[in-house]
Design a binder for these strands. Structure first.
Lengths: 348, 348
DNA sequence: ATGAAAGCGCTAACAG
DNA sequence: CTGTTAGCGCTTTCAT
């Protein structure tokens, strides 16, 4: 056990060659005799030599690390996203520096700035990030891809979930199986996903049930708000035949409100959510929902980012879209159980 | 928008001082007049100067980054752990480099080695990590704390979940509320948590129902294995009065097997799990379980690590334990709904 | 209080 | 094919 860590000099001395040769061998640059290679490798192994990444970064200007700036979210979305990014990053020999758990613009700005110099590229998911934010906080030379963002600028390519199409497909399905009136529970007003899902609801209603009035109740993505919305819906006369919540947690809250009122789901009222969180499968009745592959989202983001880092011109449009699938379970009153891919467009 | 990023030299020139003064001001070292301070600050702001962390690391030897090496797990455990670590790290001005999604010893070894030089300390959670692994792959000068590990060595302090006490408490509770025979569904044989939980089951049975035979069915933490175990249990004569699964997913699988057989839970048979995953609350009946605060685990790990990094002698024992709580819901047949802290010992 | 200068460990010309 | 050397951007003595 050496007390101090070995440097390239130590290896050079041990192998009786110059540091340049050590560098060449260890970086596989060629132009070195087999003898020298052997000597260097053995010396390096003997000394447990590991190149200092700081020194290397300093001169090469590359860190082989990509950063992920995420909001203070938790649960499946977070873990799957990180997992997708990490898996893809590791496959390309990149490390992942995460900065999650920040709330508020200033926090997000600090997180982005702190990444400066530590990463070769950035994946950003934050509701606080808009054009102005980026121009202010993002170093001009740092490639970045946005997730789930309304910013539409070739300088900052984005990958979005096709919330609109997903919502349209689900509402269409609800209408198709015979529920004439479909109510919608919204997400938080500032949320981009929520807005797109509402847009999809409106579009589907306009297309398939133009005579039906829109029935929109405010929610904020929490189970609690879903419960409140459910009670509100229950008080309506006539009661809607189906309810589409902008996310699964609200659908679950809504389900409890319906059960509490003694209603049968989907007999008395149909219900559907969005996200396909793990719970969706386990509530009774199992919740019909719209599934998004978050792992794919992460992977696509990383792929797009590495493309950017390698200087590939982004010939493609600034914004890409990740398709989602309608998952029909028991809560929507259709007696089928298949998964229909409604939007085969894929990012990456 | 400058094309090249500003260096300390640019700031020095802009402020008409030496680079040494810039460094002093920006690091708050004092010994600088207010005038100089002002000039430097303004110049830095004007140039959008951000110190290069690689250069800084090179000379200071510190990266202000800590690494987390985690297995390819997903779901709540993962996200809460990262969240706990990140929250605590950020509060101390540290960044978080994660390396998740590796499976297999070689993979884990590569992950640990790759952290070398990039981080000031390491948090490791992996079933492949034992004493030999650490001695082989962990640089001698890198502080590290283990999570959920059987390694008991002052050189590598560990924080473990008190699975044993948690399991004992749950089995004790099951026995207390009148279920004379309690069966246990194990986790994967190599899993440390699983082993501890089984140990707790055995201890509780020995203590409170020494005359009852042990009833242990093999599982592997998956819902599917829980389902199979459930069917196996159903076939026993006499049928056990209560079943304690080593984790919630298996308990859920088990629940489905019972429901499928037309049994009433907890009327005909009681059920309990371990982990308190989100689903536990949403299945019908709601699952009684043992809760662990994963966020606390992450936070404790970080705190312990920073202590190590600051050279604090680890006066405390090598292994610390994080208590867990029995959460009584509907599935275990007790008509109460409180949370009892059974093990107040806390890490950190 | 300030500046000049010496490296940190490494890569990348440039010589030989 | 190999060695010498000049920095990368920064912190830190050591003079002044």
């Amino acid at each position: 056990m050496t007390t101090k860590k070995a440097t390239i000099k130590d290896v050079a001395r041990e192998a009786k060659v110059s540091i340049a040769s050590v560098s060449r061998v260890l970086n596989g640059l060629g132009g070195v005799t087999a003898d020298t290679q052997e000597a260097v490798r053995q010396a390096a192994a003997r000394l447990h030599y590991v190149p200092d990444s700081a020194a290397r970064s300093l001169i090469t200007g590359r860190t082989h690390t990509i950063g992920a700036v995420l909001p203070d979210l938790y649960g499946e979305f977070f873990s799957e996203l990180i997992r997708g990014i990490d898996l893809a990053a590791r496959a390309r020999g990149l490390h992942l520096l995460v900065s999650s758990s920040h709330d508020g613009v200033e926090d997000a700005a600090a997180a982005v700035r702190a990444m400066r110099g530590r990463v070769d590229g950035l994946i950003v998911l934050s509701q606080f990030v808009d054009q102005a934010f980026l121009e202010k906080n993002l170093p001009a030379d740092l490639p970045a891809v946005l997730l789930d963002s309304p910013v539409d600028n070739p300088r900052y390519p984005a990958i979005n979930i096709d919330n609109d199409a997903g919502a349209q497909a689900m509402v269409g399905h609800l209408l198709d199986v015979g529920h004439a009136s479909v109510a919608f529970i919204t997400g938080p007003s500032g949320n981009f996903d929520a807005q797109q899902r509402e847009k999809g609801y409106r579009a589907a209603m306009a297309a398939h049930a133009p005579h039906m009035p829109l029935n929109i109740i405010a929610g904020d993505f929490t189970e609690e708000s879903g419960y409140r919305a459910g009670r509100e819906l229950l008080a309506q006369r006539p009661r809607p035949q189906a309810v589409f919540a902008a996310n699964d947690m609200m659908a679950v809250g809504c389900l409890y409100a319906f059960k509490e009122a003694g209603l049968d789901v989907p007999g008395d009222i149909a219900l559907a959510g969005f996200d396909d969180i793990l719970i969706a499968r386990y509530v009774t009745p199992a919740l019909s929902t719209v599934r998004v592959s978050i792992t794919d989202l992460g992977k696509s983001a990383l792929l797009l980012l590495t493309g950017l880092m390698e200087g590939k011109a982004h010939t493609s449009p600034a914004t890409r879209t990740l398709g989602c699938d309608v998952v029909v379970r028991d809560s929507c009153g259709a007696h089928q159980t298949d998964v229909a891919t409604i939007n085969p467009s894929r990012a990456g």
